[in-house]
Computed example of a mutant assay.
Amino acid sequence: MFQHLSIRTPFDDVALREEFRQRLNKVPGVEIAAAKLALRPGFPLKVLVDPDTRNTLIEQLGWFYEQAQVDDSDR
């Protein structure tokens, strides 16, 4: 949901959204094009069947959560 993130701190920074996109693309079976950075791309849920793939996604979502918790004064 990059479209919705684009108006929310800290993901209103295009560089941070791009980093998240690249991190998501590390998940096997997930391929989000750079052109989708302002849209609402998805990926096939079947990629979550594999436990290792699922864990990779959880790691990337953990990074996302950490970024969302950072106070603006910490940037």
Rank of each mutant, 00 (worst) to 15 (best):
L45N: 07
V14Y: 08
E59G: 02
D72M: 12
G42R: 06
I7N: 13
V49R: 12
E19G: 08
A15V: 06
E18F: 00
M1Q: 11
A34Y: 11
F64Q: 01
N25E: 07
T9F: 15
I58H: 06
V70G: 00
V14R: 14
F2Y: 13
L48F: 02
F2K: 08
I32W: 10
V14F: 10
D12W: 04
T53V: 15
V70R: 15
D12T: 03
E66F: 03
M1V: 07
L16E: 14
S6I: 00
N25M: 06
L61W: 05
F2D: 11
D13R: 11
Q3F: 11
G62I: 02
V70T: 13
L57G: 00
S6C: 11
M1W: 08
D13E: 10
R75Y: 15
G42I: 02
Q69R: 15
D13W: 03
E66T: 07
F43H: 03
M1P: 10
N25I: 09
S6Q: 13
R17E: 06
Q67M: 15
T56E: 15
R8V: 12
A68T: 01
E18V: 02
L16V: 11
D74M: 10
D50S: 05
P10M: 11
A15P: 00
E59A: 08
G29F: 02
F11Y: 15
G62P: 00
V49D: 12
G42Y: 07
W63G: 03
D52P: 00
T53F: 00
D50R: 09
E31C: 04
E18D: 15
P44H: 09
V70Q: 15
D71N: 15
H4M: 09
I58P: 00
L5S: 04
K26D: 12
V14D: 13
A34H: 11
L24E: 07
V49T: 07
V27W: 09
G62H: 12
R17G: 05
D74H: 10
E19H: 11
M1F: 11
G62F: 06
P41V: 01
P41G: 06
F11C: 02
E19V: 03
P44M: 04
A35D: 10
